[in-house]
Amino acid sequence: MELLIFYPLAGFCVLMGLGVIISSSPINSALSLIAMMMGLAGVFVLQQAHFLAILQIIVYAGAIMVLFMFVIMLLNLKSAEEDTWSIRPQNTYVSVLTGFLALGALYKIACVISQAKLDSPAAVPDDFGTVVRVGTTLFTDFVLPFEVASILLLAAMVGAVVLAKNKID
């Protein structure tokens, strides 16, 4: 039953991921990426990682995508359509390099998966990955990292204002 839901969801994710890299319009790519993130959130729910699924939708599909959209809007769309990405010669090196990087990462992942004992699932408590469980761990065992996270956010705020505001004025 779980596999019956997992395979359509995973297939949907892969299709949308392909859509991101194949479509020539940046807006279509961004929309495909949102759809892919939604599918991924579904996969997370299937793995009982409820909190991660919520984060995936709120932070990635909601907030990070807003940044992506703004980058697309800040750049001039018309000129991006005129000179296509593939014709510039220096991009060939970048493409080959990222291709090798991706190949290496995929090889590593394949090695890990082939060595993992998938027949015997690790013993985890029933509420593993739920909001209550993650929250309890976060607010009791990891109090200090949680508070440090707020300082990290503070630093990011200051950095954003200093960088962007000086440029505008």
Binding site: I58, V59, A63, L67, F70, A156, A160, V161
Partner: peptide, 21 residues
């Protein structure tokens, strides 16, 4: 200017996420 607003939105959005649990 929109970009600064978007970055600040992301930061406060991440803050809000901690409130759920």
């Amino acid at each position: 200017k929109f970009y600064l607003v978007a970055v600040l939105f992301v930061l406060f959005d991440i803050e809000a996420v901690f409130f759920f649990p």
